[in-house]
Design a protein around this nucleic acid. Structure first.
Length: 257
DNA sequence: ATGATTTGACCCGA
DNA sequence: TCGGGTCAAATCAT
């Protein structure tokens, strides 16, 4: 069941990303990022728990193929829509979506997003932000996502992805150099490599629509400044793309069943 | 100057 | 008419 492996892989990669962020903070922490560390640690645990539940569910599926139950429903990563009032064709009720809840909003999910709207949702204390893939125009990529804080204390953010990426991110991955200048961070890829080749300059120009997480969600402006322009990405993500022959962040409609 | 974000207006389905 | 989703002009950041 490849799609389940993909889901598990994706979740693990999310967890790995969080772990990398945590490591980055711990490497550079001076004092006041304890909350952020705690959030990230919780995210890491959350992702690993999700991945484990997916894998366990997959085993159950293999054990009992004839049973048409939907084991994914138990995973918070694959939450089904909360049936709500509103138009039937609303994004949340389309079949092609996935929802992820975490203590902090997901900005660095491997894709470049452009914010195109923000709205106060009725019966919610927090605004909902709307993002499109940065390649919507260039490559007709129809992927979208919504980010909304759904709980204040402890903070909980819901990130909902709609559609799937048709942009050629594999190529983008292939062009991003591994930054080996810092031995401590040699396993990381910097999107804003200090000495980009002409090819990379082209890609950077294409990627100008990256999200600047300067909005209300970032608890630390210093960290936001540190992370957002760089768009850190673990090289393991790129390796997974090569090794598995798929981008773990790209979801197909079959993954969503 | 250029590109991204913000935010009020508009669209459309319930 | 209401409310969620999107557009696009204004504003902001680099």
């Amino acid at each position: 069941m490849k799609s389940c492996q993909q889901k598990a892989m994706e979740t693990l990669l999310h967890g790995h990303g969080y772990a990398n962020q945590l490591k980055h903070i711990m490497d550079h922490s001076e004092s006041d990022s304890s909350m952020e560390r705690e959030d990230l640690a919780n995210s890491v645990l959350h992702c690993f728990s999700d991945a484990l539940s997916i894998l366990i569910d997959t085993n159950h599926e293999d054990d009992d193929q004839s049973n048409n139950s939907s084991p994914h429903d138990s995973s918070p990563v694959l939450e089904k829509p909360l049936h709500k009032r509103g138009r039937k064709t609303s994004m949340a009720e389309s079949s092609d979506y996935r929802r992820h809840e975490s203590p902090n909003p997901i900005y660095h999910d491997g894709f470049l997003w452009r914010k195109y709207g923000q709205k106060q949702i009725k019966e919610s204390h927090h605004q909902r932000s709307y993002y499109k893939c940065a390649y919507t125009k260039d490559q007709n990529c129809e992927a979208k996502k919504q980010v909304q804080q759904i709980q204040h204390s402890p903070p909980l953010y819901s990130t909902t992805y709609f559609g799937h990426h048709t942009c050629q991110l594999h190529q983008a991955y292939a062009t991003f150099p591994v930054d080996t200048s810092d031995p401590q961070d040699s396993h990381m890829i910097r999107f804003d490599h200090p000495n980009p080749s002409p090819h990379q300059v082209h890609d950077q120009n294409q990627n100008h629509n990256q999200i600047h997480p300067k909005d209300e969600y970032m608890s630390s402006p210093e960290k936001a400044e540190d992370w957002s322009p760089s768009h850190w990405m673990s090289s393991e993500v790129a390796h997974a793309v090569e090794a598995f022959g798929f981008n773990p962040f790209i979801r197909t409609s079959t993954d969503l069943s």
